[in-house]
Design a protein around this nucleic acid. Structure first.
Lengths: 336, 336
DNA sequence: CTGTTAGCGCCTTCAT
DNA sequence: ATGAAGGCGCTAACAG
């Protein structure tokens, strides 16, 4: 039924080794022979079996990607960066959603490894001991993407979330704000949660502003939780003049919450956040935010992984990509 | 180096056939033997090699997914539906972006087939003869997702774009609008472009409204092109009272374009579209739109594919999922 | 430049 | 319930 390399060899009157050589672009084939083989391939409609090749060569030219949720625009953007570079280096991607659930993460890591991926790109929640252990059983390189492990021993690419948050809040301070609230993510989340919260605190401290616990609400990164948190701030007797949201989505929720209550952004409340998702420039007022280069995070991580897979020696396997404050219209200078 | 099924067999004092049986949950193994094998597996840290298994069994439990662009929220949502169901049936996904470029599409279809995927899910631009031919060389089932071929011969799941557009425009008519402009996609695009435009025309016709060519602008589905198109309409001496945008993104662009010029939605202009992306309920006013069930399109397509892969016979391989008009706040009744 | 020969790690009859 | 043996389709030395 299926035509194999052996059929082609017979049809072309050569050995299967020769067919293998032309299929793999091995230069050691006489042009004439090469031509014969190509013709036989054409005639028979031969299609190389990558699984057999993988078994024989111990390379699958596919890499595993574990991702929290592909329907989340941030990860989708990162994934696009990954895929583009993978494609460029002739790798394919096996994509697995794991929803930041530890069990699911460990499970997909293992099935990916069973599938003999040549490398692994991991995005997820907290990196636990169990993760590290799963990684260690792997005989292929692994790079973390948009996450980091505590001890910084695993190759990774990310931004400095603490510094990004610091910059965001400092921008508020520079505009004269001193009553600055924060809509945070859960402090259990090391990157988007804890680190960004730490950046907020450090910025306040640096500015000599006292940290007030009731000026912090914990959201779940989503729009609705931004709306809710802002409602709470709006109900305070002593309202903040500015809000730092850990993510754009929550910030946009906050903007609409403000507007729905008849207030104005930035006239009555300034709002800033971190991410720079596409939507940030699709709201009114357009959102001032600290951009993280999502596509690049994916692209650089994948590029790093290709080097690791080729056993090239990399100078620095812990790369921090720069972030950048994008001044738009949701932050106003405070005239007091 | 790597521990194989043979090592486990020796360690457990059984044959590799037995190990294979316990690994594959074949019931014909004495519980006691099973236990011995499990222990050996544990002790050795054995991990089955899915590539070898794939070669021997001619099944890879992975399906290929060709997608226009994973960073597009609509496709990302569909992809999530696909992955969830795939996961449920123990399949993995190889994801390939093809940007609706015919060449790239054909190329990835072939590499996916070389990788011996058990099935293929295709989302893309127009299905050409070349596509059909590529599909025919496949010995595995293929289902189209959010697209359709002309002759409707390939299994597919999608919504009825023409009807969705018809419903959107009819909603406008029901609210008293008769000067209805459209921001369309390219008419070369069969689904989001041509079909939605046809729905617009039919709705006008049904309402006895004359079609006016200068009330139609062609956009590229993106926010910015919605902004541009709306600017054009705003510049007309005889302005439309309502705008139907082929996609939510363009509609949101139109809303902001209206607002930026000092007009109001829906007071001055009503706006409706098709899609119901998350952002639709994250703008002010919230966008009235005809929802297409993106997650379900992916989920149903994948479910259909699993049936096809199991050679179950399916009654209807051309499934049209229902759409639904979501009344929000961007459409007003015209008081004349 | 080309052919021969072993596997790669596992599944799957077919016996037993 | 278990074992033996023959591939699955291809790559990779090794000869020549």
């Amino acid at each position: 039924m299926t035509v194999t390399i052996y059929d082609v060899a017979r049809e072309a009157g050569v050995s299967m080794a020769t067919v293998s050589r032309v299929v793999n672009n091995n230069p050691n084939v006489k042009p004439q022979t090469r031509k014969k083989v190509y013709e036989a391939i054409e005639r028979l409609g031969y299609r190389p079996n990558a699984v057999a090749r993988g078994l024989a060569s111990k390379k699958t030219t596919t890499v595993g990607v574990v991702i929290p949720d592909i329907s989340n625009s941030i990860f989708a953007e990162i994934a696009r960066g990954i895929e583009d570079i993978a494609n460029m280096y002739h790798y394919n991607i096996i994509l697995c959603n794991a929803d930041k659930k530890k069990d699911k993460e460990i499970r997909v890591i293992n099935t990916l490894l069973e599938k003999q991926v040549d490398g692994l790109l991991f995005m997820g929640g907290t990196i636990t001991e169990d993760h590290v252990q799963a990684f260690q059983t792997a005989s292929v390189p692994i790079v973390l993407c948009a996450t980091k492990d505590e001890n910084g021993t695993i190759p990774a690419v990310d931004i400095d979330h603490e510094a990004a948050a610091f910059d965001a809040v400092s921008t508020l301070v520079r505009h004269g704000h001193r009553e600055i609230a924060m809509i945070s993510g859960t402090l259990q989340d090391p990157a988007n949660g804890y680190s960004r919260f730490q950046g907020y605190k450090r910025a306040l401290e640096t500015a000599g502003i006292e940290y007030q616990e009731d000026l912090v609400r914990i959201g779940n990164y989503r729009y609705e939780s931004g709306v809710e948190a802002m409602k709470y701030f709006l109900g305070l007797k002593r309202k903040p003049s500015a809000i730092f949201a850990a993510t754009d989505e929550m910030a946009i929720g906050a903007i609409h919450s403000v507007q729905d209550e008849g207030y104005k952004v930035p006239d009555d409340f300034s709002i800033i956040s971190v991410d720079n998702i596409r939507m940030a420039s699709m709201v009114r007022p357009q959102l001032t935010t600290v951009a993280q280069p999502m596509y690049d995070i994916g692209a650089v991580a994948m590029r790093l992984l290709t080097k690791l897979m080729k056993k090239e020696n990399v100078e620095n396997a812990q790369v921090i990509l720069p972030h950048e404050t994008i001044l738009r219209l949701s932050v106003a200078r405070l005239n007091d």
